[in-house]
């Protein structure tokens, strides 16, 4: 079992790192078209950061789905950060604090994903949703649920889990904790990593650029 989980983890990490590298190479090679560009004011950059943090453009586009989406993004980050203690021998204080917040963030994550799915499937009747989006949402929901069950009902040995994770990252594979749910949670996490939408890296740049463009547009035909 340990070997199988390790293979999945290494394969997912390889897909993730190589995929990101290849995309980066594609980005830097794409420069064939004359493109408008220019300076961006500090206020515009600050507004763009607010746009990203608050998902303002999504709020304008679809205020109905916004609460679910915003809570999902924040809680996902908190849950991810809350897992960092599994990867460090000396856990700093802030990681301990985040780990204490993680259970609440986990519940928020599940609730927000359930809200998004219900909103898309029932309220919008899937009219505008893509299968990819729904599959990804459902996979992360399942990941969250297995995590919640692991933390609350089918508790895994945290020390064994940490040792297993540390083993994976130091290429010294040891047995995972004796818990039937742990492998499922682990596999789902790496499936999400392998299929992680790269928009999480590129969308913030696009949002910052859209603010610059807005500023540019205002000055195009106006003094």
């Amino acid at each position: 079992m340990a070997i199988l989980l390790a293979i999945v983890a290494y394969a997912a990490l390889l897909v993730f790192y190589v995929g990101v590298t290849v995309r980066f190479l594609i980005y830097i090679r794409g420069d064939g078209s004359p493109a408008p560009g220019g300076k961006q004011s500090i206020s515009s950059i600050l507004l763009a950061i607010l746009d990203i943090f608050l998902l303002r453009r999504l709020f304008n586009a679809n205020p109905g789905i916004w609460p679910g989406s915003w809570v999902f993004h924040i809680s996902f980050i908190l849950v991810f950060l809350g897992h960092l203690r599994f990867f460090f021998y000396d856990v700093p204080r802030w990681m301990i604090v985040l780990a204490q917040i993680k259970p609440y963030a986990g519940v928020a994550l599940i609730a927000s994903l359930a809200y998004i799915l219900i909103y898309r499937l029932v309220w919008e009747r899937m009219k505008y949703s893509s299968i990819y989006n729904l599959m990804l949402t459902a996979t992360i929901l399942l990941l969250g649920l297995t995590g919640l069950f692991l933390a609350q009902y089918f508790r895994a040995d945290i020390t064994a889990a940490k040792n297993f994770m540390m083993g994976i990252f130091s290429f010294r594979i040891i047995a995972p904790p004796q818990n039937w749910l742990f492998p499922l949670h682990f596999l789902l996490a790496f499936v999400v990593l392998a299929f992680l939408p790269t928009h999480i890296f590129t969308a913030p740049f696009t949002t910052i650029e859209s603010r610059r463009r807005q500023e540019e547009t205002e000055g195009l035909l106006h003094d």
Binding site: Y27, R29, A35, G37, Y128, S130, Y132, P197, H199, F205
Partner: peptide, 23 residues
């Protein structure tokens, strides 16, 4: 991507496939 600017290649990647544009 030869006809695209760097920003446009990034934009193509940034699409979340959310479908708001369809509306």
């Amino acid at each position: 991507t030869s006809c695209l600017s760097r920003q446009q290649v990034i934009e193509i990647d940034a699409c979340t496939q959310c479908g708001e544009c369809l509306k």
